[in-house]
Design a protein around this nucleic acid. Structure first.
Lengths: 82, 82
DNA sequence: ATCTACTATGCGTTATAGCGAATAAATAGC
DNA sequence: GCTATTTATTCGCTATAACGCATAGTAGAT
């Protein structure tokens, strides 16, 4: 499943969804990469000041990666327009 | 063109490529979003402490967006393995 | 070689993420 | 309901991004 994200809120939501799919707690994710549960919480809630390192470390822990693409796409689905 | 990025270095490189395509200077990008040229420089050079807000603001200024996806893919090209 | 434009780096300051530790609040199971 | 787990939030502290400002490279063009 691919998740578009233009804001830190959307980014956090995508991460939370993935974590839930993997049935991990914020604490468990944090333990793996030496970040506090509170830090994972902040990231998932879209704190925009979160550092890139934190974002990328969590994504790695969750088996996620980023794709950078141009914004032009109108999505595969007509739904996305509305 | 889609650019996979798992590290801040790759993220910075993708941004720099895009900026060059648009023929903008770091200064011009910075002016649009009230960030210093030095800050754009740091981002493009992959400073991992760069804040998410900075990353996303620059991406917006460059007409880019992020897609979050699972890491499983073995790429469309056999090349990517090596 | 010089001029121009751009990018990288330095310094002192300010703002804030992440820290440990704890606790409060919310959610899930029974 | 109650209990256990999970998540959100607070405090004081430390580390560091981003700031303004400046300057030192670096690359290109003539």
């Amino acid at each position: 499943m691919e998740q578009m994200a233009r804001t830190s809120i959307q980014l956090g939501a995508a991460i939370r969804r993935r974590r839930r799919i993997l049935k991990l707690s914020q604490q468990e994710v944090g333990d793996r990469i030496r970040l506090r549960q509170a830090t994972i919480s902040a990231l998932e809630n879209g704190m925009p000041g979160t550092r890139m390192r934190t974002l990328l470390d969590v994504m790695t822990a969750l088996g996620l990666e980023i794709v950078v693409r141009e914004r032009s796409m109108i999505g595969k689905d007509i739904e996305e327009i509305f």
